[in-house]
Design a binder for these strands. Sequence first.
DNA 1: GACTGATCGTTAACCGGTTAACGTTCGGCG
DNA 2: CGCCGAACGTTAACCGGTTAACGATCAGTC
Lengths: 148, 148
Amino acid sequence: MPELLDLHGRTNKAIRAALDAALQRHGLRLGQDHLLAALWERDGRTPGEVAAVARVSTPAVTKLAARMADAGLLTRRRDDRDNRLVRLWLTDAGRALRGPVEAERRRIEERITADLTPAEREILLTALAKVHRSAADLPGGDPIGEPS
Amino acid sequence: MPELLDLHGRTNKAIRAALDAALQRHGLRLGQDHLLAALWERDGRTPGEVAAVARVSTPAVTKLAARMADAGLLTRRRDDRDNRLVRLWLTDAGRALRGPVEAERRRIEERITADLTPAEREILLTALAKVHRSAADLPGGDPIGEPS
DNA sequence: GACTGATCGTTAACCGGTTAACGTTCGGCG
DNA sequence: CGCCGAACGTTAACCGGTTAACGATCAGTC
């Protein structure tokens, strides 16, 4: 069992679980913070735009947005000028989550890198960037990025 | 958006996608290789045992095993002595996949670490191990490992 | 020997994510 | 003006994964 593959997978699983638990304390689930982040950056984006910046498929955004609209975090409204577009607008509740959620993410980032020396932290980031590039270049490595 | 959190997540996504594409060429899907690995190591394990070594929940193994049984990779048989136990037995097809699948994992591991210097590779592993430990110690960081 | 509690696998109901098929709407072009 | 293709969001059908509820079996105890 290849080392990096296994270690990286287990690490990601632990991170995801911890992050999910943290988000859940604010009534959110795992991918929803990325969707919100896209709207915090610019409100009124379309599902397609959100999907692009969140690096997720458009159907994923559709479903997320539906659940989050039910939860009262955002509203969906058709664009007046182009009627096939849908625009996602934050509610006050959705806007109010920005501070707490960003703090939560920072907190986890800190805890996770707490035991690393400055040198380790730096090399970890550069090495991970290389690995990411290599993986994305593999066949099927970036389905949404470059499918053709 | 915290650096490591984001980078690690994107990297994992790319790795998973590439690995899934590779496994798919052998008629497998993402988690199924771990289940097979547990049986390659010792055939006739129970779902609970497999779940433990694969670090997955037992229901996950149940569903995986059902699909893989349909695909003819293994068979499910009750234990004669303890009738609440179920034992998973590899078929010839399941056994035959060991070489190709392990090679596929090694291949991806190599490609992914190809651009790393020996020093980077070493520090990446040690740093990732630290991160994993820290993440697992976070509340909710290891649901199956230490829920209490 | 019967009850009672622990152990184990399965099922159901979720969640996030993907691809493929679908229905609308827009825009260019004849 | 009408058509036809491109763009967009939604839906459906999967997949892997989780937790909670369920049912069956075993084992210890009275």
